[in-house]
C-alpha cells in the first residue's frame, strides 16, 4: 500500500487557443480566438521609449511562412496572466496558437546579441516544436525592435526594450483576466505535493547573469512578464528556492 500524497497547493492553467491574428484599430483579444494589434499603439510605445528605441515593426508570421529575414531572436514569450492567487497557486490564463518573438538590431545594423546571433532566414534560424519554441502550426508575432545607435549592446537599453514588449502584452493580459474560465480550450492542473516515502529529489538550475543579453529575471508580477521582476544579478546570483508550481507559473523571464 502506497502512502497518500500530501497536496500542498493547486495551480490551474487555462489556455485559450488563438486562430486569427491581425493588425487592427485596437489591441484586443477575445475568448473565441481573435487577437488584433493596434499599429498606432506600437508606434506610440516606441515613442515612449525613444531614448533607446528608434522604432518597432510588428509582423504577423503565419505557420509555414518562415522563408523571411529575421533579426536576432531575443526571446519567445507566452502571453499569460494571473487571474486568481499568487505565483504558483490559483488560476492563470494563457494563450496557445500564438507567441511573441522580440528581435533586435540597432540603426547601424548591429544585432542585439552578446554570445552568438540568430539573425538570418527564419526558417533556418528557429527550430520549431521544442518546449521553448513555437510549433509548426503556431502564429508568431515578430516584435522587431530597432535600437538607437549602439543601444542594442547596452544593458539598460535591452532591459527597457523588454519592458516595452511587456507593456504591450499587459494590454492583452488585462482583457484575459476577464475571460470566462469555462470557455477555455484547455485546462491543466498542477499540484505541489509531498510524496512520503519516495525519493526526495532537488532540481538545481544555473541561469546566466552576466549583463546585457546574458540576463535572467525572476518573480515578475505577471507570468513570464518583466514588470515587478528583478535580475538574478540583483540577487547577487545567490540561490533562490522556488516551488515546482512557482516555476511552472512563469516565475522566470529569459533575457539572453
Amino acid at each position: 500500500m502506497g502512502v497518500q500524497e500530501i497536496d500542498l497547493r493547486r495551480l490551474v492553467i487555462k489556455s485559450f487557443h488563438m486562430t486569427d491574428v491581425q493588425m487592427g484599430d485596437e489591441n484586443k483579444i477575445t475568448m473565441d480566438g481573435k487577437l488584433t494589434i493596434d499599429g498606432s499603439y506600437v508606434k506610440d510605445l516606441a515613442e515612449r521609449h525613444s531614448k533607446v528605441i528608434e522604432k518597432i515593426d510588428i509582423q504577423i508570421i503565419q505557420p509555414g511562412d518562415h522563408d523571411r529575414y529575421t533579426n536576432t531572436i531575443m526571446d519567445i514569450i507566452p502571453i499569460s496572466t494571473k487571474v486568481l492567487g499568487k505565483c504558483g497557486e490559483g488560476i492563470t490564463h494563457t494563450v496557445t496558437g500564438v507567441y511573441v518573438m522580440p528581435t533586435g538590431v540597432d540603426v547601424d545594423g548591429e544585432q542585439a546579441h552578446e554570445f552568438g546571433s540568430s539573425e538570418g532566414n527564419l526558417k533556418d534560424m528557429l527550430y520549431l516544436n521544442r518546449a521553448g519554441t513555437p510549433s509548426d502550426t503556431d502564429i508568431i508575432i515578430s516584435f522587431d525592435i530597432t535600437f538607437k545607435k549602439g543601444m542594442g549592446q547596452e544593458r539598460h537599453a535591452i532591459i527597457e526594450a523588454y519592458h516595452a514588449v511587456d507593456e504591450w502584452i499587459q494590454v492583452y493580459r488585462e482583457q484575459m483576466k476577464k475571460f470566462n474560465g469555462n470557455k477555455a480550450t484547455e485546462k491543466h492542473e498542477y499540484h505541489d505535493v509531498i510524496r512520503p516515502g519516495q525519493k526526495k529529489v532537488l532540481i538545481i538550475k544555473e541561469m546566466i547573469a552576466h549583463g546585457a543579453m546574458l540576463d535572467t529575471w525572476i518573480f515578475p508580477n505577471e507570468p513570464s512578464g518583466v514588470a515587478g521582476g528583478k535580475s538574478l544579478i540583483d540577487y547577487g546570483c545567490m540561490p533562490v528556492m522556488l516551488t515546482p508550481n512557482e516555476f511552472r507559473d512563469g516565475a522566470i523571464h529569459s533575457m539572453n
Partner: peptide, 29 residues
C-alpha cells in the same frame, strides 16, 4: 526562452514521477 521555462519538461517529468518527491527548484545565477 521564457516559453521553455513556462513549459519546462524537466519540472514536468520529475514532478509527475510517482517514485519521486520533488522538493523544489533551486535557481542560481
Amino acid at each position: 526562452t521564457s516559453l521553455h521555462h513556462f513549459r519546462d519538461p524537466l519540472v514536468d517529468i520529475v514532478g509527475s514521477d510517482s517514485g519521486i518527491d520533488l522538493m523544489g527548484v533551486l535557481v542560481f545565477g
